[in-house]
Design a binder for these strands. Structure first.
Lengths: 327, 327
DNA sequence: TCATAATGTGTAACCGGTTACATATCAATG
DNA sequence: CATTGATATGTAACCGGTTACACATTATGA
């Protein structure tokens, strides 16, 4: 790799001039510019970002802290973030914390010492004090933070309502629900919305983490404890897939005997049989907005903290009947 | 963030001494060491990795180049890579190239200028000349590269054979296949293995990319063009899910009328109805091995290039019958 | 006891960029 | 014509680490 000094030498100018043409600032004569450009091309020169970083204290790196990229909700988020970051010349550093405070802490110092320019956090320790004392631009994604940190989330309460309304509109009368991890506020809102609409038509309810395995257990439990019911709202699509599987196992026909609505709108929902009706979050959009917001913060285009709330939509596939159609 | 100079001052030693205790090299007296350690603790000091990087020309960064993290095969790989990297103090930079040469090229220079220590490539441009002129440790994952680059792959040919043998052993007599993208050598081997065992029992064959949408089209085509058949091998689990869905749509019972075997062993296979029998690659293990190999290369523990071939296994779920059991 | 090796520590150069500052030329202005 | 501001360029300091080298002190061995 060539250095700026070699370029300067070849172009018969000083390193300062080379730096000026690269960064397009200061005064540079046309001849000098041309000579430098030719030298850069000849040597196939690209400036050393580490050296630049040391002086400018910016790295072009964004830290992405997630619980587990293996959870199918996150890859799309990661993809959106990476896309936007890349379009603006940033790279993203992937960190899986498994929700463990210790891992999170380790990453935080690693990211800080490598001078990342900002952080996107999709992790759920709602009150990790480490974040606040970190003086870094950051935005929380799909997660609600107490104070001082920007957040991009979708409207979980409305999503929960929409799920219940849809089930009811499609003729369900006995509703059940499998909620998500209770400490996740964004997830809890879905439950709240659902329950507010379901009212006393709710005949059963249980909880599950977002791993398929636990979802299977929870589904069995739901059937064992509360059957019969004719409409289920699952806190995410993975759980919904487990419900679908359990229904098949019990020879319960979907959607004829039981309607199911999931949450998230991940691709998995298209792949189940029958394809899953779900409340879709604008996942890519959420990632995009979060990253744009972060870049605004990094490049000082915005100051005041705010929360961006995105709408959810119903994706009707085949685990619900047509609306208005009765049993 | 404190600097080494501040630590030195507080400990009443020179920066050299501080550096020595941090890196645990050179001579340091017990008192000096203790003073420095106290100063480090007091100031909550962590060395600036950028500065260190500039001098040592190592960054503790690994570039991970994948087609698309959104494809459900990759997150598990990414997870394994990140786990191992992290255990050894490295961070990983995520790059999605969509198989576009231009994007790949952009990333390559970005990664190079930020002095990543190594590269893991799961991308399929089998002969991108950019890699060879890059003087960086790298290993190809789930991808075969001409020469000079280490590779970690699983035994696709054997996997294909195993799929065919299983289908046959479970009573299938008329086999069909949906192959993957033809330019992917690792995927083509699956087809080769399958065909070699299937022989003239193959009644139909088509191809598909790994997107679900295309897989649905390919599945319809397979049924339209070649039905009846009683055993299908899909080049990956996503395609198998599409086949399953199409079977339901046509009222073909699985596994009674039609047995299906997928490939990869991703979690999706557990979530379909019925759960998918599949040829499982040791995905996490592949990521782990690739990363360990890369670290060996980076830390100069290994020199000669080699290809690591990992075995695949049959994961029997419910889209195949019990072996030996006839129709 | 003296030469030599081992131990301990600081100074300064270096990594490869960016930029403040000094200096020089030239055109415009009154 | 002298003054001023715009243009152009180079020198050197700086970012925060690492380490070669110089130097001093202490231990070891003959």
């Amino acid at each position: 790799m060539a250095t700026i000094k070699q370029v300067a030498k070849r172009a018969n100018v000083s390193v300062a001039t080379v730096s000026r043409v690269m960064n397009n600032n200061g005064y540079v004569s046309a001849e000098a510019r041309e000579a430098v450009e030719r030298a850069i091309a000849d040597l196939d020169y690209a400036p050393n970002r580490v050296a630049r970083s040391l002086f400018t204290k910016t790295s072009g790196l964004i830290g992405l802290i997630m619980p587990d990229i293996t959870n199918p909700f996150f890859p799309q988020l990661a993809r959106a973030i990476e896309d936007v970051a890349n379009q603006h010349g940033y790279q993203v550093v992937l960190c899986n914390t498994d929700e463990q405070l210790a891992k999170e802490q380790t990453y935080l110092v690693a990211l800080q010492t490598m001078h990342v320019d900002g952080l996107i956090i999709t992790t759920n320790h709602s009150d990790n004090p480490n974040y606040e004392k970190l003086e870094l631009p950051m935005v929380a994604l799909d997660r609600i933070v107490k104070s001082g940190i920007d957040a991009v989330i979708s409207d979980g309460y409305e999503g929960g309502r929409l799920a219940a309304e849809t089930l009811l509109a499609c003729g369900a009368t006995k509703l059940a629900q499998i909620g998500g991890p209770e400490q996740l506020q964004t997830v809890k809102r879905r439950t709240d919305g659902f329950l507010d609409v379901a009212g006393d038509r709710l005949v059963g309810m249980t909880h599950s983490s977002f791993t398929f395995k636990e979802a299977v257990t929870a589904s069995k439990h739901l059937f064992d404890a509360y059957w019969p019911f004719d409409g289920v709202f699952a806190a995410n699509d993975v759980i919904a897939a487990a419900v679908l599987q359990e229904a098949v196992r019990r020879n319960v026909r979907v959607p004829e005997d039981l309607q199911v609505i999931g949450y998230d709108g991940i691709e998995l929902g298209e792949m189940t049989s029958p394809p899953l009706t779900t409340i879709a979050q604008p996942i890519y959009e959420m990632g995009r907005r979060a990253t744009e917001r972060l870049l605004d913060l990094i490049e000082k285009r915005e100051i005041e903290t705010k929360e961006i709330l995105l709408p959810v939509t119903l994706t009707e596939r085949q685990t619900t009947k047509r609306k208005g159609q009765d049993t």
